[in-house]
Each structure stands twice: as structure tokens, then as C-alpha cells.
Design a protein around this nucleic acid. Structure first.
Lengths: 215, 215
DNA sequence: TTTTGTATTGAATAATCATTCAATTTTTAT
DNA sequence: ATAAAAATTGAATGATTATTCAATACAAAA
């Protein structure tokens, strides 16, 4: 009966396109469902309905619910990674401006909104019991931390800051971001993205006292 | 058949004691089960087995699984609260020493261990969908923040620190602790309790530059 | 058009689980 | 000791859900 099918590309290498359409529709629907109902209450049936495919298909397409969840986490992780990778790769930009852009990104509404955060935390909460979740989260973390430390050491050189090692600054920053994201989820009235961003900027200002771009 | 029953108190106001025994056994078992298997995989049957009562009883005793979970979160919350409340109530102690004790408490092995943290995060992850979880977490937070701000303002007076408001310091501290707890869960090899505690102490040292007790 | 292969459906299956409750054991009062 | 009350059991129930798969719709090839 009624099918809303996407027009096909020519042919030969059959598809990559409309395969991806359903693939992506399901991943999006999964993330949306987790955001709306929580991981505990996310069923294949809910996801399939939201993605407008049959329940059987959703399972068939990803082999298992577990695999669908892993793919969704991977997608979320990649999406976040792209956003900061872009900033780290920008050319001709002062390290302090770069780190400010990183901070802005971490508290942009695209990244730090209650839906995304709730999905992250849902996966975090299972990390201890699902090695595959842990692996995805750790891989992300590692690269981010590495680039962050490099950036901070550039700043340390310029600003002639000796008190803190780049690792320490990177670690505290990262922890603060995670903690603030959690707080955005709990109490978005108080913890607006602006509020959180400014808190972090002030933290940097306390480290680099002579630098007023953090103000 | 075999029962390991606890000797009773005399009588009249029937019990409060042995009622509490089963009550507490079930709450302990719930927390342990969540720590070992994750919230998603915590069933009444698992909890009952661990508490050495029948499955039917576990449900009967708390009326519902949901209620058992809420009671367990409340217990966890109270336990944590007691630990810091004690420090805030200590007499004849210098505010800086007091805050150091608070930090030590937040990274003591009794509080910041992987089991407890995983249970906290499990509940956090559902906060958006369960008003009762949120209420418990928020109440905790509010009192803690309030006392913390008061303590910080005492320190600010002594240390003559103007850059940061007590609220800002309290917020960043709290976020950092939450973030670091998360990291202890992810990678306990790197994020030892010592490591985390020292990171936070260093943060305070950067705020109160002239105070060397934070070193 | 007809045939063939692929994508998709949706109903059936089997497993898991919270909850119920009649039956049993244990405790308390007489 | 006996009866009444309370606590506790564990098997049955019904709801939910991931997964399977035979049937169908669709697209491409002949």
C-alpha cells in the first residue's frame, strides 16, 4: 500500500543512497525516541513508528536492537567530533581565539541541548556494562583530550603560564563541561547555555589572568 | 524452612526494627544490583535473590518496583547528605580547612567509587522522565549548594578574593566534581580518587593564590 | 508484459518481567 | 498450648517486547 519511497539513483552500485535513507531515518528516530522517552522506555516499536517503517524492518535492518543503539551512539559521537574537529583544523587563528571557539561550540544549542544531553547520559549510564558503549565514548574522549592539550600548551607558551600543566587544564575543562551539561539537564532555567559558557570562560580567565578575551 | 531471622525487640510498637531489616536489605540489594548489572537489567527477581527474600515479597514490601527504586535513590541521597552535613556542622574549624574536608569527602572511596557512581548516573539518566527522581536530586543539590556558597563567601572574605562570586565558585566546583565522578567511572586507571582530588585542590589554589593549604 | 530478485511488511513466537494472591510459615496474644 | 494475626512464599497471570519469517509489494531485467 502507501509507500513514501525515495526516488532512486540510476542503478549499478545499487544505492548507498536509499539504503542510507532508511539507515539514517532509523538512527534519527532512535535518538529522538531516547530523548523523548528515555533509554529504558525505548522499544523497537516506538523507533520504527517514528521512522515510519515496520517494526520487523527496523530490527532486520540493524540485525538487533543492540546494534541499532550502538550505531546511534556512534552517530552522535561522530556528529560531536565533526563539530570540534572543524575548529581544531581552522587555519590562521590565534590559539586563544581557537579555545574560545571550542568553548562556544561545547555550549552551542546544537550540542548542549536537553535532548542531546539526555541521550548522552543514557548511554553513559550503561557504559560500565556495555564494552561497546565504553569503547565509543573513550575513543572520542582520547582524541579530544589530545588536541585540547596541544592547544592549551600553545596558550601556556604565549601566556607564560607555569602553574598548571596542559593536561591539568584540559582535564578540568572537560570535567566541568560534562558536569555543566548534566546541570543543564537538571535545571535548564538556571543553567542556560550562556550561564555555563560564561562560567567556563571565567575559569580560563582565572588561569590566564592577563588575557582579557575570556571576560 | 530455613530462615535467618533476626531476634525481635520486645513488642508493643511492633518493630520499626525488623521491618527496617527487610526494608534496608532490599534497598541495599537494589543498589548493589544496579551497580553490578545496570539499571536496565535490574529486575525484582535479581534484587529479591540478593536480599534473600522471595520475589513476591520484594514487590509487596515496596508496593512496586518503581517505589523500591525511588526509595533506593532517596537512601543514596541521604547517605551522601549525611557525609557532608557532618562536615558543615563541625565547630571550631577554619573555613579553608572545612572546604578541604569537603573536597576530601567528595573523593573519598566511600563516596566516589565506581559502584556508587554508576548507580548515581543510572538514576541521573532517567531524571528527565521521572519527576520523583528529579525532585530527590534537586533537593540534595540545593542544600549542598547553599551551604557551599556560604562557606565560600567566608573564605572570600578572609582571602580577600573579588574576582569570583561564591556562587560561581560553588557552581564550578560542583560541576567539576560531577564531571570527575563520571570520569572515574569511565577510566579508573587514570582517574584515581587522588588524581581527581588534587585536580580540584589545584583549581582552588588558582583562585586563592596566596593560600598554600590547597597545594 | 513477464520474470526474477530485493525490500518491506506485519502477524506470530517466545522470552522476560512486574504484579497478584492463595497458601504456608512465623509471631503474638490469650 | 491454641488461636488469631502478621509476615512471607512461590507459582500463576498478563503485559510487554525483541526477534523471526512467510507473505507481499516493489523495482529491474528480460
Amino acid at each position: 500500500m502507501m509507500k513514501a519511497l525515495v526516488n532512486k539513483k540510476s542503478s549499478e552500485q545499487a544505492s548507498e543512497t536509499e539504503i542510507s535513507v532508511n539507515h539514517q531515518k532509523l538512527i534519527d528516530a532512535t535518538i529522538e525516541t531516547i530523548a523523548k522517552r528515555g533509554l529504558a522506555d525505548t522499544t523497537i516499536a516506538h523507533v520504527a513508528k517514528r521512522a515510519k517503517v515496520s517494526q520487523g524492518y527496523a530490527n532486520f535492518r540493524f540485525n538487533s536492537k543492540d546494534n541499532l543503539l550502538i550505531s546511534s551512539l556512534q552517530y552522535l559521537s561522530d556528529e560531536y567530533k565533526k563539530s570540534w574537529q572543524k575548529i581544531f583544523e581552522e587555519k590562521n587563528i590565534d590559539p586563544i581565539d581557537r579555545i574560545i571557539r571550542i568553548i562556544q561550540n561545547d555550549f552551542s544549542s546544537k550540542i548542549a541541548n536537553r535532548n542531546k544531553i539526555s541521550v548522552w547520559i543514557a548511554f553513559y549510564s550503561e557504559v560500565k556494562f556495555r564494552p561497546s558503549y565504553l569503547a565509543i565514548c573513550q575513543r572520542q574522549d582520547e582524541i579530544y583530550s589530545q588536541q585540547m592539550e596541544k592547544l592549551v600548551s600553545e596558550i601556556n607558551n604565549i601566556a607564560n603560564q607555569k602553574e598548571f600543566t596542559p593536561k591539568e587544564i584540559s582535564e578540568t575543562y572537560h570535567s566541568m563541561v560534562d558536569g555543566l551539561w548534566q546541570r543543564i539537564l537538571f535545571d535548564p532555567k538556571i543553567y542556560t547555555n550562556e550561564f555555563c559558557k560564561n562560567l567556563v570562560l571565567k575559569y580560563f580567565k582565572s588561569i590566564y589572568v592577563n588575557e582579557d578575551r575570556f571576560a
